Amino acid sequence: MIKSLNTAATGMLAQQNNMDVISNNIANVNTTGFKKGRAEFEDLVYHNLKDPGAASGMNSITPTGVQTGLGVRTAAIQKDFTGGSAIITRNPLDLQIEGAGFFQVRTPDGEISYTRDGSFKKDAGGRVVDKNGNALIPEIVVPPNTMALEISPSGEVRSITDQAGEPQVLGQIDLASFINPAGLKNVGKNLFLPTAASGQPQQARPGTSGLGYLAQGELEGSNVNIVDEMVNMISAQRAYETNSKVVQTADQMMQTAVNIK
């Protein structure tokens, strides 16, 4: 009976983790560039009363064995980097990556972070920064007399200062890619950091080396599907309830055994 109590408890803990992931997905349904997560589980070690293939008699072996599972645990929370829907803003500093790739920004501590959130702005010095003031890398500075800003699909940034003049090239926006983007570390504020699992970043122009092109005046919405998350939440809730019923049933069986006279 004690085994079933512990096994059901691990199931309840796993479904609680699953609900945590689902609730985070739903909370970020309107977060620009957010990528939904998915909890993945694995079974725990088994109590082997008889190994499969063990001798069961003269010249015979047991075909299946006797193995009792001891529960489940959360093995991973997988990030899904499929693209989100486009949000038209017509803001010249709003950029969407139409495909793979990450924008590069430099945080105040000098570290380079990576993001899919292309809602950029200008700071007091004209630098292009994200909503938290992290500078876009490579650095782009917009002159104060700029009348219009053009960003090509390949990332070239041009400034138009007067109607008759030629556009002035301000710089080039490069993107970064990773062999395993699911191995990136989430640090909040729509930012990721590379890890040993993600591999080192590879920089290239948009539209090359498998990277997507840039779309000016658009943002990438969250890839969370609210209907899928509601279905997943119901499934997790029912699994949690079922595991709690196992705990109650095991308790009742133990009570029956104790009350035997």
Results as ranks from 00 to 15, higher is better:
260 I>Y: 12
64 T>E: 14
34 F>E: 11
111 E>Y: 08
159 S>F: 04
167 P>E: 04
171 G>N: 00
9 A>N: 01
33 G>K: 06
186 N>D: 15
205 R>Y: 06
36 K>W: 09
153 P>L: 05
187 V>A: 06
61 I>D: 13
12 M>T: 04
222 S>R: 06
129 V>Y: 01
160 I>G: 00
170 L>Q: 03
98 E>S: 13
202 Q>P: 01
125 G>D: 12
236 A>L: 07
241 E>I: 10
211 L>G: 06
201 P>L: 02
169 V>P: 02
169 V>K: 07
78 Q>T: 15
130 D>A: 03
169 V>N: 05
223 N>H: 04
29 V>G: 12
199 G>L: 00
135 A>V: 13
8 A>G: 02
130 D>N: 12
72 V>M: 06
63 P>A: 12
33 G>W: 04
129 V>I: 07
83 G>N: 15
91 N>E: 15
45 V>D: 14
191 L>P: 00
63 P>Y: 05
49 L>F: 14
15 Q>N: 08
56 S>C: 08
81 F>N: 13
254 M>H: 04
172 Q>A: 08
140 I>H: 00
33 G>M: 02
60 S>M: 14
157 V>D: 09
242 T>A: 15
149 L>A: 08
176 A>E: 07
1 M>K: 01
212 G>W: 11
53 G>A: 06
28 N>F: 07
34 F>I: 08
134 N>H: 07
145 N>A: 08
19 M>Y: 04
176 A>S: 10
171 G>S: 09
209 S>P: 05
260 I>Q: 15
74 T>C: 10
204 A>P: 00
60 S>V: 11
200 Q>F: 02
20 D>Q: 01
179 I>S: 14
228 D>Q: 13
256 T>W: 13
66 V>C: 00
38 R>M: 14
214 L>R: 03
205 R>N: 14
196 A>V: 12
49 L>K: 09
173 I>G: 06
158 R>H: 11
137 I>L: 09
90 R>N: 15
54 A>D: 13
68 T>H: 13
165 G>D: 09
113 S>M: 11
118 G>T: 01
233 M>Y: 05
174 D>Q: 13
